[in-house]
Nucleic acid binder design. Structure first.
Length: 734
DNA sequence: TAATTCGAAT
């Protein structure tokens, strides 16, 4: 096929004509046509000039950022950039600083930081614009330190920074560690008189927000006289990122009052600030912003957090151009609902469209496999990862580690971790939590030790996982060390870490420590309250548990199933029948919490222990679901306590038909016969227990390990084989 | 300016 006709040229074109064609390709964002045209120009021996290159680069830059660039695609674009570079040198156009700067910019947008830097070094002359492009490129590619260094170098070489320079550089300081550098640049801006610029103010606002200094962000924002959409979006985003959702909504209202029209970034920022998906959807539809893929994706996500997968599905279907990011959001929504079948339909859909998974999508799919039945599918996706090269990505490797841990394949998880080249904290955390979840806390501690050796510091996630490992080991001493670590390193003792600490102290027998931690938490969340309530209940401190429950309500926290399990258990322990009845009633009527089998079992225990057998039986009869083994077993133990032999025998029959192999069954039967004084029968049951391998639950209790020997004795009974030497350093870790 | 992964409470 004639190349010329494909771009609409049949005769040797003039340069101005070519330029006007290139301009039209820039407008239609058609990179490919622009490149074809350029090739043709070379075939016709037309000599391109600086303007030609400038237009060509513009065509490449404008489309490469908007199109969904798959990995293969960007490899091609890289090659094209190199070829343009060669022609540029050949035709001597590199003399023109603005053309070289445009190429530098393209390299940076493609992520070719090295090429860009080399090009910059080779440039015979530089100006502020080329410095800006260089600094901006480093900053956008995440090379924050380099960006800062270059800024200093630029100043040293006598170039005076422009507003744009600051706007390019400031985002690099948007992290806690670099906040002081950010402040210096802010100060520099003030001295240099660059700070009155609203773009500079916007970027500084965003920087302070990312460093969690909302006060500074608000202060800067209020200083902006003419607040643009960008300013408003920045402030809405600032509130959202720091969890101030109400303030984000208020800012949006103010923005509307000041008649600044929202754009798609506003919608996205609002949605990530937990805005109501329905009303945001409505607003976006009215203002015509709902046609944008990123708005749709954000809506899918926000609907998903509200459990509304159906709306997400409809939104995805409404997309004219399907894309991987939106599809990943939809898959994640299905994963959240535990609907792996739908996730797989999405995958099939993706293959029909001849799209390929990327690392994020892969992680999302792996995350959806939780049931032991899914393991085969997990292996298949591991294979897909190996074939496609995706499993080399550390994100995917981390996902695989959690996948294998979920299926108790800790050894595989270990070897996967050892194969990761750039191990991140998440990689280590994945394995540590994997070990804990697989019931192998001692392995978790060993991994933790290796992690420390490799130079990583634990974060809140590491600590929470390890603390719950300590519960399993009863390892109070180590738990206490972790607590010290948290305090010394100023890790926030809220939500996760706080709850894990409370739980650890409770399970290790130190409720007074748990209380102290609890009191230090300013705003305990639901899980924290639940831990404390069930802790009190576990220790038989029913009044404290109930007091805690009412205090929690005063603080405006809505109780859930677990809260009521703790409350009802407390009533049972304390024999508070009336309180128990009341709470069981208000649970549904006042809090809309539907009782499940565990709640019913609690109530049966409450009545039974109080000797109210008629009420217990009536209660079972009125249950909305079939009573299970636990419900009847609770009643039988109450019968034993009160020597209610007749009812006991009736209940025992029920239990026998439900599950005659249950280890607990033998124990209960033996107790019943003992109550009746039927010692021969007791002996017979004991004999049966021995024959069937005991009750299956005998073990050792560990509250505190006093020496390495004790530890090894206790640990060798668990599945892991542990090297005593590996533990030695743990004892002197901090 | 959109998607994902590691953490607590029965």
């Amino acid at each position: 096929m004639n190349l010329a006709s494909s771009v609409g040229l049949s005769t040797k074109p003039s340069l101005p004509r070519l330029h006007s064609l290139l301009n039209s390709y820039i407008e239609s964002r058609n990179r490919k046509q622009a490149l074809l045209l350029f090739r043709q120009l070379l075939e016709y021996n037309v000599k391109p000039n600086d303007l030609t290159f400038s237009l060509l680069l513009k065509a490449c830059t404008s489309s490469s950022s908007s199109s969904s660039s798959s990995a293969l695609n960007s490899v091609n674009v890289n090659r094209e950039a190199n070829q343009i570079h060669t022609h540029l040198l050949k035709s001597g156009v590199d003399r023109f600083m603005y053309v070289s700067t445009a190429l530098l910019d393209l390299y940076m947008k493609l992520g070719c930081v090295r090429n860009a830097h080399r090009l910059f070094d080779d440039m015979p002359d530089r100006d502020v614009v080329s410095w800006n492009a260089l600094i901006c490129g480093f900053s956008r590619n995440g090379c924050d330190f380099e960006a800062l260094k270059l800024f200093v170098q630029m100043c040293k070489e006598g170039f005076f920074p422009h507003q744009t320079t600051l706007v390019s550089l400031v985002p690099s300081c948007g992290r806690q560690e670099l906040v002081s550098q950010g402040k210096s640049i802010h100060g520099f801006g003030i001295k240099a008189g660059l700070d009155s610029d609203s773009h500079v103010k916007n970027s500084l606002t965003s920087m302070y927000a990312k460093c969690a200094d909302l006060e500074a962000a608000e202060h800067l924002f209020e200083e902006i006289v003419e607040k643009s959409v960008v300013s408003w979006n920045t402030m809405i985003g600032a509130y959202g990122q720091n969890g101030f959702f109400d303030e984000a909504m208020l800012a949006f209202k103010r923005m509307q009052e000041e008649s600044v029209p929202a754009n798609l970034v506003t919608m996205v920022s609002l949605l990530s600030a937990n805005a109501d998906p329905e009303s945001t959807h409505c607003h976006a539809t009215k203002t015509g912003l709902v046609n944008d893929a990123s708005v749709i994706t954000s809506l899918i996500c926000q609907y998903a957090t509200h459990g509304n997968t159906e709306s997400g599905e409809l939104l995805y279907k409404s997309l004219p151009q399907k894309n991987l990011v939106s599809l990943t959001a939809l898959m994640s929504s299905y994963t959240e609902k535990g609907n792996l079948f739908q996730v797989m339909s999405c995958f099939a859909h993706l293959q029909r469209l001849e799209m390929k998974l990327d690392a994020v999508a892969m992680v999302c799919i792996l995350h959806g496999m939780k049931d032991p039945m899914d393991f085969g599918l997990g292996l298949a996706f591991h294979a897909y990862g190996l074939k496609s090269g995706l499993s080399a990505d550390s994100l995917v490797a981390n996902g695989l580690i959690s996948l294998y841990s979920r299926f108790d394949k800790i050894e595989t998880a270990f070897s996967l971790l050892s194969e990761i080249h750039g191990k991140t904290l998440i990689s280590w955390n994945s394995l540590i939590s994997g070990c804990v979840q697989a019931g192998r806390p001692s392995d978790a501690l060993e991994v933790f030790f290796q992690m420390k050796m490799s130079g990583h510091s634990p974060d809140a996630i590491t600590i929470s996982s390890l603390l719950s490992g300590c519960c399993q080991l009863g390892y109070l001493q180590f738990g206490g060390r972790l607590h010290n670590y948290v305090l010394r390193n100023n890790l926030e003792v809220e939500d996760f870490v706080g709850t894990a600490l409370i739980d650890m102290y409770i399970k290790c027998g130190r409720i007074e420590h748990a209380e102290r931690v609890f009191k230090s938490i300013k705003e305990p969340c639901l899980a924290t309250w639940n831990s404390m309530i069930s802790g009190y209940s576990l220790y038989g401190l029913e009044h404290e548990a109930l007091a805690c429950f009412s205090e929690m309500q005063k603080q405006g926290i809505k109780p859930d199933k677990i809260t009521f399990l703790g409350v009802l258990a407390a009533c049972t322990h304390g024999g508070l029948v009336q309180e128990g009845r009341k709470h069981f009633q208000i649970m549904r009527e006042q809090f809309n919490v539907v009782p499940d089998l565990q709640h019913y079992a609690c109530m049966v225990g409450l009545f039974g222990r109080a000797g109210l057998f008629e009420e217990a039986l009536m209660f079972i009869r009125n249950m909305e679901m079939e009573p299970d083994f636990a419900v009847w077993a609770t009643l039988l133990s109450a019968c034993c306590i009160h020597q209610e032999v007749k009812l006991g025998e009736y209940v025992a029959k029920k239990l026998f038909f439900l599950d005659s192999n249950n280890g607990g069954f033998f124990v209960l039967m033996s107790n019943l016969y003992a109550v009746k004084g039927m010692w021969d029968e007791v002996a017979r049951v004991r004999e049966m227990m021995r024959e069937t391998g005991g009750d299956g639950c005998s073990g050792i209790s560990v509250i505190e390990m006093t020496s390495l020997e004790d530890m090894n004795v206790n640990l060798s009974s668990s599945k892991s084989s542990l090297n005593a030497n590996a533990w030695q350093p743990l004892l002197s870790l901090y």
